[in-house]
Structure formats: C-alpha cells, structure tokens
Design a protein around this nucleic acid. Structure first.
Length: 569
RNA sequence: UGCCCGAUGGUGUAACGGUAGCACGACAGGUUCUGGCCCUGUUAGUCUAGGUUCGAAUCCUAGUCGGGCAACCA
C-alpha cells in the first residue's frame, strides 16, 4: 500500500489520476443534469450522490443544471420538485443552479460558427428520407443531397428557421461528420430542430431548439465541468460529445459513463412509473410504494439511509440488479439508531390482569431508544385491562414458541412478568380474552414452578390506548425483475414497450389497518419516524395526518426470525 | 446483422501480475426486558478455451452470454 495505489470505484480512480497529473489544475467540477419532465427516483439518487460526492470529496463543486432543451415535454412544475428532492437528499448546489435554456443564445451563435466552418448544414430531407439516408448500423449511410449546401445558404436558412419562417420538421440543422461511421450518432446527427412550442423559461423567444447531443457538451463546457458523469447508454454519444467540442475548440470536459441502478421488486423507468400513476395503480408520484424520492420520503425513509445505500452499491460499468434487501438494511440501520420506540398493537386481544383492581392505576418507565441514551424515557400508565397482540398467545404452543400460553409466563415490556391463568373463546373458537396474574412482588418469577421467561411482548393499556390508521406497505411487485420478466414472457426485444410487467403487481402491496397505540404516539408530528416495538418502523404520514390523529405508513418491518422459522415448515 | 460496452459467491462490490476480501442475504449459535440491535461461526465465487509469465480474476486472442446504439427524446 502506497499513497498512489488506486482505490475506490473506477470514477474515483480516474479523478484521482487526473488530479495527480495536474489536469484542470486539480479542480473537480461535476453536475447533476436532470431534464425537468418527471420526478426523481432512487436511480437518480445514485447519480446525485456520485456527482455531489465526488465534488465534495475532492474539494470541488457540483452544479444542479436543468437540461431543458425540449419545450414540449418539460414543465416548470418539475423544476421545483427536483430541487426539493435534491435538497432533501442532503445536497447543496449553492449558487450553482443553472438552466440549459440560459445558454440558448451562445449555443445558437456556436451553431452559426459551425456552419461557417463547414461543419454543419441545413438539411431539407423529410424524416422518412432522413432515416433512409442514415442507413443501418451494418451498412454505411448515404450523404444527404444538402450536405454540401453553401455555408451562406445554410446560414440564411438557419436564421429563417429561428425567425419562424418554416413549419416544424421542414428543416433541421445537422453536424457534418461521417455518413459511413459505424456509430449512427456520427452520421450527420441533427443538432437543431424547429419547435414552435412555448418554453417554460424562454417563452416564445425561440423557434429552434438544440438537441441533447449538441447542447449537453456545450453546457458542460460553459460551466467548466471537469468530469461529466452519465449513464451507460450515452457511451455511443461520447464521440459526438468530443467531436463538437473539438470542432468549436472549446474547453473540453471528460464524459465518463457508469451503470444505472436497477432495484429488485420495482420498476425504474420514467415511462412505467408514469403509467402506474396515470392508471391509478398507485396513489400518485409520492405513493410510498414507489421508488421515487418523494415516495420514499413519504414512506419514512431517511435521506441518510439512501445516501448510505448509494455508498454501498458502488459504481461500475456492469449492469446489475441490486437486491432491495440492501436498501431495507440501510433503512433499518439508520432508523434503529434514530427512531424513538413506542408500543402499538395491530391485532388486539384482551389481557386481563386478575390481581389488579378495577380502578387501580399502575405506572412504569419505558426507555425511548435503547440505542440512544439521550432520548430519555417516558412513563406509561396501565391497569387491569390490557391489549396484546393475538399472535403472542397460542392455546397449544409448540416448544420453540416463547410467548404466552396456558400456564406460561412472559414479560410485558417494562411492566413486569405475567403468568397466564386462563382464557376464553367464542363460539367460533377464537380466543377473546386471556387472564393472567401480574407478578407484583417477584414471587411468580422466583417460583420454580414458573417456566423460564424467555420472551418479552408489547402491550397497550386498554383504557388509554388510542386508535390510529396504519398503512402496511409491501413490495410493489411479486417478482424481482418485473420489466425483464415481462419482456421475456412476451418474447419482446423491446422491454420498454411491454405492458405486461403490470401482471406482476403485488395485490397486497398496501393493507390499511387500525392500530391501538400508547397515547404519546398521537403527539408525533407529521413526517416523524417511530419504531413500534417488535413490529416495524413507521412514519407519520405528512399528508393525511391531522393534529392529534396521525396516520402511519410502515417504512420497514423489523427482522423477524421467529416468523421466518414459523413459515419455513 | 455492423460497431461499442460488460462478465468475481444467491445479490452488490474489492483486488490493478504475487494469500480472492468486504457488505447484504441465507443458515447455525451466543447475548438480550424488542425472537430487534449487537457478537461469533457456516455457506458460497473469478463465463469458456487457448496463449504470455516463475506466477493471471488481472495482460493477449478467440468464443459464449448479457447490455447498448438505428427519436427532429434526454
């Protein structure tokens, strides 16, 4: 191990090497360049963490830049939501908030310069002809008859395109590169097209708009971006990125591609997410079952958990499918440290402490978070009538079941030991009430006749418990790779055109239940996380909670080795 | 079909020509007033075939498999 030994993922290594070589004076400037035409999801979080992370790590900066070059799909509404999500994730772009549309004037002038240099021309081919001339990957394309149009003529046409003299589609501006290139993107790609739509920022000022390939490298260059990180599908665009910057002799950032994130049991494509929302398969973009950042936020996933997750998945050029269990682990890990504990009973059965008086009020101290001494404790009231989880009592328990059963003893969390003395059932055979004695002086626990106490169960006071709504969320799909599986089933080459992934929607992805909670739970503000002991992490829904009446979203269950064992056989 | 990219336990990743390691998961045990957390252990991997080398996950060649590219989207 020496100081120059490579370490970390390949992008960090590249940046390290660049700095060591003194490129850009050791400066690191990155950017996160979303198109404002949809909501951010956890796949974007990977990119955000990478870009902002590299900048922070190397003492540079990261820009937030809206890539708003297509007025017909982009809306101002998304600009706000994207900023909110990036900030929520914990990143700060400072003053460096940019819009591609702010560079339209410069881009336009560079386009004219390209024409003057004989490196671009206005083409009059129809879209159909354009396709035919471009050819297929295995065979070279044919030059457009307009390829050698004099610069003066192209210049004039281009200016009239912008002046609004032509209909959409009548003309395009193309870079003059190589119609025989095996890379289709180099076969005289379109760099400007006519669009008579109103832009969310520039209004009706422009009639021509730059294409991604033309615009993006210029945006990066203008901002002095040193490392332009993007996903793998842009790999074939890189030669064009480089060509344009060289043709205009501009500052030349380096484009580096990495694999996008795929997560099991969900879908990540903008199109599919939109479809689920539009068709009402979920309640909206912020449905807690969605991998959108607003969905995860509403579900109660802490931003720190997402950052930890993004740290652990790594950065490579290999297209993988990350197990959602890793995300869940990061969520539990964070919430275990930070979420206060409370008790809630979801499927109640009455527990009567026969040796406690009708009006007697007992109290006990409950620790708010065993992982965080600072969190302190609270006082719990209880009496003769309690509610416990129906699952915690078995009429005829197997030996490995440590909870309550006839004659058995368990510990009530913080309240003491109880021994079951009897139970009653209804006509249907369901247990309706359990009788037990509270070990008020330690004699029951000391009694050699009492079976060893191995379990602690949670409870709420029958008299004090408050009913709240809880939403139990589970994975949205029943299969690991709904998109892939659907495509395979349909024998579809075009996975993205398949609607069949909806076949794998989990019908039980949301269950609404009523929970009985200890009174202090109603004080939790919207958005607050809590662990209901032995059950899971929940979050007071930011939208539907009312003062004193929180609604809880289940963020994640607790690991439950008993449940796993029980279902195993 | 042409070009480009990739391939390490079930999953995600590390190694940069010199002992294949970490995390998640699964399994077993310990601990515990949460069958949580924590701790210990087990499981299991270099796509194939050649080549270079004292030595290859790593370099080379070929193949296999997977992905990308043929919007006036980004």
């Amino acid at each position: 191990m020496n100081a120059t030994a490579p370490s970390g993922h390949f992008i960090r290594q590249i940046i390290d090497a660049d700095r060591a070589a003194g490129r850009h004076g050791g400066r690191v400037i990155t950017r996160f360049p979303p198109e404002p035409n949809g909501y951010l999801h956890i796949g974007h979080a990977k990119s955000i963490c990478l870009n902002f992370g590299m900048a922070r790590e190397f003492g540079g900066r990261c820009h937030l830049r809206f890539d708003d070059t297509n007025p017909i799909t982009e809306e101002a509404e998304y600009v706000g939501s994207i900023q909110r999500d990036v900030a929520w994730l914990g990143f700060d772009w400072g003053e460096h908030l940019y819009f591609a549309s702010d560079y339209f004037d410069r881009m336009y002038r560079w386009a004219e310069e390209l024409i003057r240099r004989g490196k671009a021309y206005v083409c009059t081919l129809t879209p159909e002809e354009f396709k035919a001339y471009r050819g297929v990957p295995s065979r070279p394309g044919k030059p457009s008859p307009w390829r050698d149009r004099p610069a003066e003529e192209s210049l004039d046409l281009f200016r009239r395109m912008q002046a609004g003299a032509f209909e959409e589609g009548a003309y395009v501006l193309r870079a003059r590169i190589d119609m025989a290139s095996p890379n289709l993107h180099m076969r005289d790609p379109v760099i400007y097209r006519i669009r008579k739509a109103s832009h969310h920022r520039t209004g009706d000022r422009w009639n021509v708009y730059p294409m991604y390939d033309y615009a993006h490298c210029l945006e990066d260059s203008i901002e002095g971006v040193t490392h332009s990180l993007c996903t793998l599908e842009f790999e074939v665009h890189r030669p064009l990125y480089d060509w344009l910057l060289d043709a205009l002799e501009l500052f030349h950032p380096q484009q580096i591609e990495f694999a996008r994130l795929n997560l099991s049991y969900t879908v990540m494509s903008k199109r599919k997410l939109l479809e689920l929302v539009r068709e009402g398969k979920v309640a909206g973009w912020d449905d807690p079952r969605l991998p959108t950042l607003c969905g995860l936020r509403r579900r109660g996933v802490p931003p720190a958990a997402i950052r930890a997750f993004c740290d652990r998945i790594g950065v490579t050029k290999y297209e993988s499918l990350t197990d959602v269990a890793l995300l869940e682990h990061c969520i539990r890990d964070e919430l275990n440290r930070t979420a206060p504990r409370r008790m809630a009973v979801f499927n109640p059965v009455r527990l009567v402490l026969t040796n406690v008086g009708e009006d007697e009020v007992l109290t006990c101290e409950a620790i708010n978070n065993p992982e965080d001494p600072e969190a302190g404790s609270r006082t719990l009231r209880f009496g003769r009538d309690l509610l416990i989880e129906a699952d915690d009592f078995l009429e005829d328990p197997p030996s490995k079941f440590y909870r309550l059963g006839p004659g058995r003893a368990v510990r009530l969390r913080y309240a003491g030991v109880v021994r079951c003395t009897g139970f009653t059932k209804d006509e249907a055979g369901a247990v309706t009430e359990i009788q037990a004695e509270l070990d008020r002086d330690g004699s029951i626990e000391a009694d050699p006749a009492t079976p060893r106490i191995r379990a602690t169960i949670h409870w709420v006071s029958g008299r004090d418990a408050v009913e709240v709504e809880a939403r139990l969320y589970d994975r949205l799909f029943t299969v690991e790779d709904p998109a892939g599986e659907a495509a395979e089933t349909e024998a579809e080459a075009e996975a993205d055109t398949s609607a069949d992934y909806k076949r794998f929607l989990n019908p039980d992805s949301l269950r609404r239940v009523t929970a009985r909670v200890e009174p202090s739970v109603t004080d939790l503000p919207p958005g607050a996380s809590v662990q209901f002991e032995r059950t899971g992490y929940f979050c007071a829904d930011p939208e539907d909670s009312r003062p004193g009446r929180p609604v809880f979203n289940r963020t994640a269950t607790l690991r439950d080795t008993w449940a796993r064992k029980a279902t195993q056989k």
